[in-house]
C-alpha cells in the first residue's frame, strides 16, 4: 500500500464517481441541497479518518473543530465580509489553531482518556457558544449571514446547485491533499505512530509532533467542513458542537472503514443515503433501522453486509479495508 506505484485504476474509479457527484445537482436539482450537505459531512468524516484512521487518535468530540469552523465562517460572513472562500480560509485557520492548541491534551494517555478529553472539549465549546449568545445567537443559532457570490461570480442559489458544486469541489481538493499527505514519507511515519508509538519513538520518529500535526490537520479539515455547512445553509446552530454530531461522524467512519482515504467519504455517503431512504419510509423510526444496520456491520463485518454473496463463498483471507 505504502510502496505501490500504480494507481491508474483507483484514479479512474474516483474520477468517475466524482464526475457523477458533480453532475447530480444539475441532473436532479431537487437533490442539490442533499448533495451539498453530504459533501460537507463527507469532508468531516475524512478529517476524522486522518485523526483516527491514520494517527490512531480516538476522538468522541471531533465536532468541536467542526463547530469552531462553522461559527468562525458564520461570524466572519456576518461581521467582516461575505466572500465564501475567504470565510472558508478563516474557518480552516481558526480550527487548525484550535486543533494545534488542543493537541496538547491528546499527546498522553490511553484511548479511554482521549475519548474523555475530546468529548469534554466539545461539551465545553457547546456551553460557551450557548453562554455567549450575544455573539453566537445562543440557542437561537447564528442568523443573518449573507453569503457573497463564489469567486465573485456565482451566487448561492436557494435550490443549492452552486453550494453543492462548491462543497464537492472543496471535498475533492481535500481528498487529493489528504491522499497526497498520507502516502508521503510523512504519512508513513504517521502510520508508524498509529501502529506502535513506543517503537515509532525508538526509530527516531518524534511521536508528539506527529500526533500534533495529525490532530491540527484533522481539525483544519473538520473546520472546513463546518464552514461549508455554515455557508451553504446560511445558518449555524449549537447543534454543530453536539455529541450526536461527533458520534455520527464516528459511525460514518466505522461504516466506511478507518485508515483508508475513501473510508470516511464512502461511509458518509452510505450514512446520508441510508438516512434519506429510511427517513422517507418511516420518518420517526429511522434510527431503529440505522441501529440495525450498524449492528449487522458490527457482527457480520462490513464485507459481508455490503457484499452478501460473499457469505456463500469461502471466507476471504484478505483483510477488510
Amino acid at each position: 500500500m505504502l510502496l505501490a506505484t500504480d494507481r491508474w485504476r483507483e484514479r479512474l474509479i474516483v474520477g468517475f464517481l466524482f464526475a457523477v457527484a458533480f453532475g447530480l445537482p444539475w441532473l436532479m436539482p431537487s437533490r442539490a441541497l442533499f448533495v451539498a450537505e453530504t459533501a460537507s459531512v463527507a469532508l468531516f468524516a475524512l478529517s476524522l479518518d486522518l485523526v483516527l484512521g491514520y494517527a490512531g487518535i480516538v476522538s468522541l468530540g471531533h465536532a468541536a473543530f467542526f463547530g469552531v469552523g462553522a461559527y468562525a465562517a458564520g461570524l466572519f460572513a456576518k461581521l467582516v465580509m461575505p466572500d465564501p472562500l475567504t470565510g472558508l480560509a478563516v474557518g480552516i485557520a481558526v480550527a487548525a489553531l484550535m486543533g494545534l492548541a488542543c493537541s496538547l491534551t491528546i499527546l498522553r494517555g490511553s484511548d479511554l482518556t482521549r475519548i474523555m478529553v475530546t468529548l469534554a472539549l466539545s461539551l465545553l465549546l457547546y456551553e460557551l457558544a450557548n453562554r455567549f449568545d450575544a455573539i453566537t445567537g445562543g440557542a437561537d443559532g447564528l442568523q443573518g449571514m449573507a453569503m457573497g457570490p463564489l469567486l465573485g461570480r456565482f451566487e448561492f442559489d436557494l435550490q443549492g446547485q452552486v453550494p453543492a458544486t462548491y462543497a464537492l469541489a472543496v471535498l475533492f481538493l481535500a481528498l487529493l491533499l489528504v491522499q497526497w499527505v498520507v502516502r508521503s514519507p510523512l504519512g508513513a511515519t504517521l502510520l508508524a505512530v498509529r501502529d506502535n508509538p513506543l517503537r515509532a519513538a525508538a526509530v527516531g520518529i518524534p511521536v508528539a509532533s506527529r500526533l500534533a500535526f495529525a490532530y491540527a490537520f484533522g481539525a483544519a479539515l473538520a473546520g472546513a467542513a463546518g464552514a461549508l455547512v455554515a455557508q451553504t445553509s446560511g445558518f449555524v446552530s449549537l447543534e454543530v458542537f453536539s455529541i450526536e454530531r461527533s458520534a455520527d461522524v464516528l459511525l460514518m467512519l466505522v461504516i466506511g472503514g478507518a485508515g483508508w482515504v475513501y473510508g470516511g467519504v464512502l461511509g458518509a455517503v452510505a450514512f446520508k443515503v441510508l438516512n434519506e431512504l429510511v427517513a422517507g419510509i418511516t420518518p420517526q423510526y429511522w434510527t431503529f433501522w440505522m441501529g440495525l444496520f450498524l449492528l449487522a456491520i458490527g457482527l457480520l463485518g462490513r464485507e459481508r453486509v455490503l457484499r452478501p454473496w460473499a457469505l456463500w463463498q469461502r471466507p476471504s483471507t484478505k483483510a477488510v479495508r
Binding site: 505504502l2 506505484t5 499527505v181 502516502r183 514519507p185 504519512g187 508513513a188 511515519t189 508508524a192 527516531g204
Partner: peptide, 24 residues
Amino acid sequence: RETLALIVGQQRGLGRRWWGSLAR
C-alpha cells in the same frame, strides 16, 4: 518492506516530507 523503507526514509531526513512517495 514498508516498515524498513519508512525507517530508512526517516533516517535519511525524509520523515517530514509531505509530498511524493517512498516508492520513488
